[in-house]
Every structure is written in structure tokens, then in C-alpha cells.
Design a binder for these strands. Structure first.
Ligand SMILES: [Zn+2]
Ligand SMILES: [Zn+2]
Ligand SMILES: [Zn+2]
Ligand SMILES: [Zn+2]
Lengths: 142, 142
DNA sequence: TATAAACTTAGAGTTAACTCTAAGGTCAAC
DNA sequence: GTTGACCTTAGAGTTAACTCTAAGTTTATA
């Protein structure tokens, strides 16, 4: 049984974050000492590591909640439920990637066009481009 | 001179957002009617369009504030100041792109590994992968 | 036994960029 | 001269995921 700081060291989450996740139903300590200290079993640690992995991939805490409930009772859930969540996340990531790639291209183009030197900006092509409005249109985050 | 709703229609910003930008020093109405209505001159419109362009590229409101002050007095600023802001933004975008690309790869790999079918999830390779912790490590957002 | 490190809770604060509400004043048209 | 669209302000609410604080309790170490 680990104390919260030990679980924190193991997972790389802070003790604060672990308590925060607990409040959101993602992590729990299967035991409390008489004085109220949290103690984590091996199963608790595995669960925390699952949460950390899912978080690393980019799943939201809400997604992770659903994934955990599937993990807890695999019999009652289908692979399709899992791929639905995963596909939705991938769609989201792809959408954001498109936005960022558009920004990247525009920024690179702007940087190429500007001398970047120490002289004054009266001739600056970046300022001009922004003024003219002839910048690549990037989609806003949804 | 345009009223706020007309500027909104022109720029695609909402009237709320225009007032919000004004509060943050980005947009201003060079005139007010006796009753307090905002009226925007051609120069105001250009400035609002500059803000909109910069926002589309992904600059933060703070960045835009700095860009506007350069735009307002180009003599006192250098191209380098402009490229610094732009380069910093590009670095940020590139960092986020790396994170998202790692997520994308992991998610695609997970989706390939799972059957996605209607049977129960006792054998689900996505759940297994998250359990095992053997997912690609993606950097967290800074 | 004394001190420091670690733990507890409830709840407030952070960030960015909006987004909305309430309560009321103004303006154009019919 | 009244309806309805539009305008004003101040300020609160939203979102996600933390992050921190305060005030007090417990435990480990010397
Ligand atoms: Zn230059
Ligand atoms: Zn330049
Ligand atoms: Zn399957
Ligand atoms: Zn599966």
C-alpha cells in the first residue's frame, strides 16, 4: 500500500492532481488509515497508471471516466464503444492538426517575407500582410 | 462611420467580441454619439481587420496588442521585433504540432489494433494497451 | 519530546478568450 | 406614439484541467 506521495512519484502526477482526479471519480484509494490518509493498493496503482496513459494520449478526463467504466466491466461493453471514443478523439486531433498546419504555413511564409533586421518597420511585410488581410485563413478551434 | 453591428457583419466578429477587444485595447471606436453609440471610421475598420487577421493566424490577444503598437508607430520599431513575435508563435505552433502528431499516431495505432466490433470488450486491445502503459509517450501541453 | 515533513479538507485562484445576462436607453419605421 | 431592433454598461458565467492556499492533524526522525 502506497501513500499519496509515493503514488505521485510512481505516476508522475502530483498529489494535488491525484486528489483532483479522485474528486472526478478517476482514481481512488481503496483504504484510508484511521487518521484519513489515503493508501493505494496494487490495483489502485494500475488504475492510476491507466489514467496517466490515457491522459498522455490526450483523452479528456470525461473520456477517461468512460474508458474506466468499460475497463471495470468489460463484459458489459463492446469494442465498438472503445473505438468510438478513440475515433472521436482522433477526429478532434486531426481537426486541430489541420488548423495548426495552416497556421504553421502562414507563419513560415510571413517569416520568409520579412527581413527581420534592426531597421524600422515602415516597410515590414508582416505588418503589411496583416493589414492587407491577405493571410491564409485558418479555421478557429471548435 | 459604421455602427457596431455593421462592423461585426464586416469582420465576422460578434458585437460582444468587439466590445471585449475594446476592453483589452485592441479595437476602438473613434467616435461616440451623444447617446453613447460606438461609431467606427475607415481607419477603425482597418484596425479591426488587422486584429481579425492576426487572430486567424493564431496570435494571442497579447501578441496582437504588441503588433498593433508596432503598426501604430512603425518608425519606432524594427522588423526584428515583428519576426521575434512571429517566430515565437511558430515555435509554439510547432511544439503543439509535435504533441498532436504523437497523439495522432498513437490513436491510429490503437484503432488499427482493435476490432471495433459489437462483441464484449474482454479482449479489447485498446484497453489492454492503456492498462499496460505501452502507449507512445506524448508530451503534455506546456 | 520537539521539530519537520507529509497528510487532511474545503474552497479559491489560474488561464484565455470569449459569451451571456440584466436592466435599461435609443432609434427607425409605420 | 408605439413597436421592435439595436445599443449601452457592469459584471457574472463558461471551459478544462489543474494549482494553490489555509488551517489544522499525523507521522517519522533525532
Ligand atoms: Zn525589414
Ligand atoms: Zn518586417
Ligand atoms: Zn474486439
Ligand atoms: Zn477492442
Amino acid at each position: 500500500m502506497l501513500k499519496i506521495s509515493e503514488l505521485a512519484a510512481l505516476t508522475g502526477l502530483s498529489a494535488h492532481t491525484i486528489r483532483f482526479y479522485e474528486k472526478h471519480g478517476l482514481i481512488e484509494a481503496s483504504k484510508r488509515s484511521d487518521s484519513g490518509y489515503r493508501y493505494y493498493s496494487d490495483a489502485d496503482v494500475k488504475r492510476a497508471e491507466f489514467v496517466k496513459s490515457a491522459r498522455n494520449i490526450g483523452f479528456s478526463l470525461d473520456d477517461i471516466g468512460v474508458l474506466l467504466s468499460i475497463r471495470l466491466d468489460k463484459q458489459s461493453h463492446s469494442c465498438q464503444e472503445v473505438t468510438d471514443i478513440t475515433q472521436n478523439k482522433l477526429d478532434e486531433v486531426n481537426e486541430r492538426l489541420s488548423e495548426l498546419q495552416a497556421m504553421q504555413q502562414t507563419l513560415e511564409r510571413l517569416l520568409e517575407s520579412c527581413c527581420g533586421g534592426p531597421e524600422n518597420a515602415t516597410h515590414c511585410s508582416i505588418i503589411e500582410a496583416l493589414d492587407g488581410g491577405d493571410v491564409t485563413v485558418t479555421r478557429r478551434a471548435s
